[in-house]
Structure formats: structure tokens, C-alpha cells
Design a binder for these strands. Structure first.
Lengths: 237, 237
DNA sequence: GCCATTATTGACCGACGAGTCAATAACGAC
DNA sequence: GTCGTTATTGACTCGTCGGTCAATAATGGC
């Protein structure tokens, strides 16, 4: 009689891989460390996965499978007949479900968000981001057609901005130890986009100031003050 | 008489390193390939840089030095007396200068934006992003104080959204072969935030539709449809 | 116990690549 | 040419680690 396979080996190895990848990145995580952490042998690892990269891809696959339930899953049909409030309510509801999922699966999402941005694996997250952006674009188009959104919107650029903002939100969320008030965060996010920054009507009058312009508000986000001594120390570290 | 040092060695090596890092990532780029590309020896490499990582950090340092001229360089003082139009004009001007710099330095910015997101180097971009976000926050506070922006804005969350959006813009820009109309892009970006999506006044009336909500507009940006067969194929390599 | 079948193991091999340093080269003064 | 000083070189060392596979273990039937 053949020996039966160990039922938990693959899952044990994947769980250990997730931790090692999270701590060291895919390139620097070693199969030795993964197997040691899982209490398994290297041979067992290679029975289940063709390579270290294959284990990583398996983890990514499960992450994307979960997220795919939320992202780009629903797009507006031409027969959809909503008002702006209904649209916003559903936008918020979908956001909440998606980010609740992100919160509940922080380790693996953190992995995908960090490692997935690196050279040879970037295509994974790129594909995902493209789908998300296309979906956003379709909802923007719907909003414009219905007269809810400004007709002069550049759909491509605006969807890029919205996609980037939610991307940043996810990255911040997976790093937190304590769960924030997601409903509030997401409600504020949506308001930032739908309502904008401008206070209504009063801003137009105050905006006629003749004072010479001097200060910026929008910033390129990868910047830092190179003159910060502490960061120089870090670079030399 | 001592032999004079080669004046271009270090720059040659850095230029070569940039290309190799861009193509292979820091972990997988080899000193052998870098030195071969630069027409220099491994010994020369180690004369100028303590390690491969040190060369990478030198590249990052120069990237941040350039960007630091734009990002977080100017913050509003209490004596600043601008109207909204002046504020927006300068926001746009600063964006233009920053993104012009990004465009002119695509290779190194592409490197920082990709590699800088990976585990052990993530702190570099994090520090930068933090400075940028704080700067955005200060400008938002200024706008609220002056009555230009909505008083109910959550500064922290809104600055996160804006920072993320510009981050995405930079990432898209460094990948392009042909320069887009930056002024238009940035103008649209700003409008997305300041004016918001909502059409003025008409949307409120149309928004009273009693139809049941069903479609989302805001999406979690790392998502994709896991049901896409082509992406499944990519995951399976 | 033996048996056949399959699972699991970890010592081992060999490729790779970071980093070293003795040998060689470059330089102007004499 | 020699000399002293410094720069540059690349063959080499050695540690790391991905992946292999013969040895061992686990299993139920007999």
C-alpha cells in the first residue's frame, strides 16, 4: 500500500513562504529558511513547487483570486438607471468590502503590494491595476453620461488619479497594526473625489486675490528633502 | 609621481549600474555585468563603491537630490496671503517643474520608483513620500484656513489620496516613450482634486433617482479580474 | 514479520557572484 | 632608462543557495 501524502505539507510551506517573503523579499528569502520554518524538508518543497518563484506566484494567485471578487467585478450597463446618491452609495459599499478583505488578508496583500512592484514581478500588479483603472474609467463615463460628473473630465487621467489614490490607501492599510475606521476613511476618500477640495461658492470670490502666487500644494510623491541630515545618514547607512 | 586617478571611472560605473539595475533589479544585477558594461574592472568598482548596494544608494541619492528641489521645498507661511486662483497657479507651476524633471530623468526615476518599493530599500521612498505628504497636508490646511477648501476635510486622508495619485502619475510617466502633454495632464489632475467629479448643481437634482444602487466607481487599485484567462496563464508562467 | 508502493528526507553537488589582493600599469621627476 | 607613488586589473577564493536523488520512512495488505 502506498504511503498517503501529507495533507498539510503544501499549506504549511506556503504559510512559511509568506512569512519569509514578507521579511526578506522573494530574491533574498531562501528555500532553506522556508522549509525550516515550515518544519519540512527541501525535498518536500520541490515536490510541491517547481521553484521558489513558483511558490511566490501561488501566493499571488490566491491574493488576486480574493481581490478579484471586488475589483472590476461590476461595471455599469447601458440599462443601469441610477442617481448620483445611489451611485455613490454603491461605490462606497464596494470600497468597504474590498478594503475589509485587504485588512483581513494583510500579510499576503503586503507581500503582493511590495514584491509585486519589483522588476520581474511587476507585471502581476500592473495587470491588476489596468483592470481596476478600466473599471474606474467606465464608471466615470457613466457618471458623465448621466450628467453627474463634469463633462470636461479627462477620463483616462482622472481614472489614473483615482486608481493611484486607492493604491496608496491599500499600501498604508496593510502596514497598520490597528484597524482604522474604514468607513470613515473610504467616505472621505470618495468625498475628496466627488466633491473636490473647493468649498462651495465662497471660494470663487476669495480666489480673486491679486497677490503673486508662491506656494505649491500638489507634490510629486516620491520626493524628499535631500537636505535632511537624517535621511542622508540613512543613505550612507 | 603618483598615477592620477581616472576622472570618468566613477561616472561610467554609475551610468552602467543604472542600466543594469533598471534591467535586472538590484538583487539580480551583477557587479560583473556592470563593470563589463562600463569597460572597467571589478577592482575599480570596489575602489569607488563599498558594495553593489552602495552604488545603488548613490544613484538614489542623486535622484532624490534633484527631486528635493521641488518636493516639500516650499510650504505656506502664516503671512502668505493668496487667493485660490493664485494658490492653484503655483500648485500647477510646481507640478510642471517637478514632472518636467521626472521626464528628463526617466531612467533613474524609473529605477527608484521600482526598486525603491522593494523590502529592504522601501525606507528610501517611504521617507520621501512622508515629506511629500506632510507638505501637501500643510497646503490643505492653508486652503481650509483661508476658506478655499471644505472645512470638513480630513487632512490626513485627503493628503494620502493626493499623494497616491501623483505617485501613480509619476510611475506612468517614467514608462512612456513619448512625452505626453504634461501641462494638460497636470491641469486635469489638479481639477480632479480641487473641483471634484461632480457637475455643479445639476447633479443634485438628478441624484434623487429612486433606483436601487448597483454599480461601484471607486476601486481597489491592485485588483484584477481573476477570471481573466490571460492573467491566469501569466500566473502559471 | 515481509512486501510493494509512494512519500519524505537532507547531505550533497555545482553554479554563481561578491569581494580580495598580488601583479601589473601609469605617471612625472630625475 | 630607473624610481617611488598611486591606480587599475582580473584570476582567484570562498561562501551561499537552488535544486537533486539515493537512502530512508510510512502505509495497508498479506
Amino acid at each position: 500500500m502506498a504511503r498517503p501524502p501529507d495533507k498539510t505539507a503544501r499549506a504549511d510551506l506556503l504559510a512559511a513562504a509568506l512569512i519569509e517573503f514578507d521579511e526578506h523579499g522573494v530574491e533574498r528569502a531562501t528555500v532553506e529558511a522556508i522549509t525550516s520554518r515550515a518544519g519540512r524538508s527541501k525535498g518536500a518543497f520541490y515536490l510541491h513547487f517547481e521553484s521558489k518563484e513558483a511558490a511566490f506566484l501561488a501566493l499571488c494567485e490566491s491574493a488576486f483570486a480574493g481581490l478579484g471578487e471586488f475589483i472590476g467585478a461590476v461595471t455599469p450597463s447601458s440599462s443601469l438607471d441610477w442617481g448620483l446618491e445611489a451611485l455613490r452609495a454603491h461605490w462606497l459599499e464596494t470600497d468597504l468590502r474590498a478594503f475589509e478583505y485587504v485588512w483581513q488578508h494583510r500579510p499576503i496583500l503586503r507581500l503582493v503590494l511590495s514584491v509585486g512592484m519589483c522588476g520581474r514581478f511587476a507585471y502581476l500588479v500592473d495587470a491588476f491595476a489596468t483592470v481596476a483603472r478600466e473599471s474606474i474609467a467606465r464608471w466615470l463615463e457613466y457618471g458623465v453620461e448621466r450628467g453627474f460628473y463634469r463633462a470636461e473630465l479627462d477620463i483616462a487621467i482622472t481614472s489614473m488619479a483615482i486608481g493611484g489614490a486607492y493604491d496608496r490607501l491599500a499600501r498604508e492599510l496593510v502596514r497598520l497594526e490597528k484597524k482604522p475606521d474604514l468607513a470613515r476613511w473610504l467616505s472621505q476618500f470618495q468625498a475628496t473625489f466627488v466633491e473636490g477640495l473647493a468649498a462651495r461658492e465662497r471660494a470663487t470670490k476669495r480666489g480673486q486675490s491679486p497677490t503673486k502666487p508662491r506656494g505649491p500644494a500638489g507634490e510629486e510623491p516620491v520626493a524628499a528633502k535631500t537636505r535632511r541630515a537624517s535621511r542622508h545618514a540613512a543613505l550612507r547607512g
